[in-house]
C-alpha cells in the first residue's frame, strides 16, 4: 500500500506499508515535491534523508514487517520545507549527534550511517514521542533561506 493525498500544491500526506519496495516511490515523490522550492541538488539530499529515515523505521522499528504502516506529511510552510514521519514502533531515542569518526572501514554501526546522512543533509531534525498513542514522530526541515 502506498497512498498519496495532495491537499494542496504545498502539502502532501502519504500512508505507506513498511515495505522496502516503497522506498523508490517515496524518494521520487520527495525529490519531485522539494524541487518545486529548492535546487535539484538540495531536493536529492532531502530524498536521501527521507529514504534513510524510512529505511531505519522499516528495518529497526518495524523489524521488516511489511504489514506495519508509516505516515508521512510533507509540506512547505513560510521559509521551510518540512516532513513529519510517524511510526508506532518502540520508542526511539536518538544519539544527540552522530559523529563522523564512527564510520570507519572496519566498523559501521547499524543505522548510524543513515542517521549521519540525515543530519548532514537536513537543516533540522527533531525526534519526538507521543506517549498517549505510543507514536514516534520525526520532523525534518530544510530551510529555504540562508
Amino acid at each position: 500500500m502506498f497512498k498519496v493525498e495532495e491537499k494542496s500544491s504545498d502539502s502532501i500526506f502519504i500512508e505507506m506499508n513498511a515495505d522496502t519496495a516503497n522506498i523508490e516511490m517515496i524518494t521520487e515523490l520527495i525529490m519531485d515535491f522539494s524541487s518545486r522550492f529548492i535546487s535539484e541538488e538540495q531536493a536529492y539530499k532531502m530524498g536521501v534523508a527521507v529514504d534513510e529515515a524510512v529505511t531505519n523505521i522499516i528495518m529497526y522499528a518495524y523489524s521488516s514487517d511489511p504489514e506495519k504502516v508509516i505516515f508521512l506529511h510533507l509540506f512547505k510552510k513560510h521559509d521551510e520545507i518540512a516532513i513529519q514521519i510517524e511510526n508506532f514502533g518502540p520508542k526511539f531515542t536518538p544519539p544527540v549527534i552522530v559523529e563522523k569518526k564512527k564510520f570507519s572501514f572496519d566498523k559501521l554501526e547499524e543505522g548510524g550511517l543513515g542517521l549521519y546522512l540525515m543530519q548532514e543533509f537536513m537543516d533540522e531534525l527533531r525526534f519526538l514521542y507521543d506517549f498517549q498513542v505510543c507514536k514516534n514522530i520525526l520532523v525534518m526541515k530544510k530551510y529555504l533561506i540562508g
Binding site: V48, E52, T55, L108, L113, G114
Partner: peptide, 12 residues
C-alpha cells in the same frame, strides 16, 4: 543515479 547508506554498505 542514486545511492543510500544501504548501498554504501555494499561497497564496504
Amino acid at each position: 543515479s542514486y545511492l543510500s547508506s544501504s548501498g554504501l554498505r555494499v561497497f564496504i
